[in-house]
Amino acid sequence: MLRSIQHVEALSSRQISTTSMLLKNRAGKTKSTSNRTQLLTYEMAQKPHHIGVRKSWLTWHSQNLEEFRQSQPLVVAQDEVVRRFIRGFFPQNLVVSGNEIVIKRRGNVLIVAGFLQYSRRLDIRRIYWMFGFAEEFLSILLKQPVKLEMAFVESEEDVAYNYI
């Protein structure tokens, strides 16, 4: 009983918190390096308030418009499924960890666009097989035609816009 008196004293003494506030806006801010090695793609280099001005959206559909919101949550969930599938299926070919895959919906078709890089063992037949598999798999999963429109770059440096 007496032993706990010490703690009561400690609690009663008031202190000033020196921790920085966590209410700041962190989106679109990339930490720079001293030797400018941090790669920024065009998409990363533009700030969030530039969306629709200097850069575009990573998903294109009509469910954000007024009176078109019948299945907005569905679209968000589908996007996540598609992105995760592409990241998991092409792990050797991703650039910037597959964060910049663009998903476009046109009519009933879902188009997945973006950049991939050559893997260490470049086998074009394998790429074709994987494209065929991914298109058919996602089509059956989402019950709508899915097309891949991915372009290839030699390495991640090819998509660099700036180094900070």
Binding site: I124, R125, R126, Y128, W129, M130, F131, G132, F133, A134, E135, E136, F137, I140, L141
Partner: peptide, 16 residues
């Protein structure tokens, strides 16, 4: 290449 893509599709269909 055409056949490789088609066989990829067939594999996905078989899976489903």
């Amino acid at each position: 290449y055409f056949m490789a893509k088609e066989f990829g599709k067939r594999a996905a269909r078989e899976l489903a």
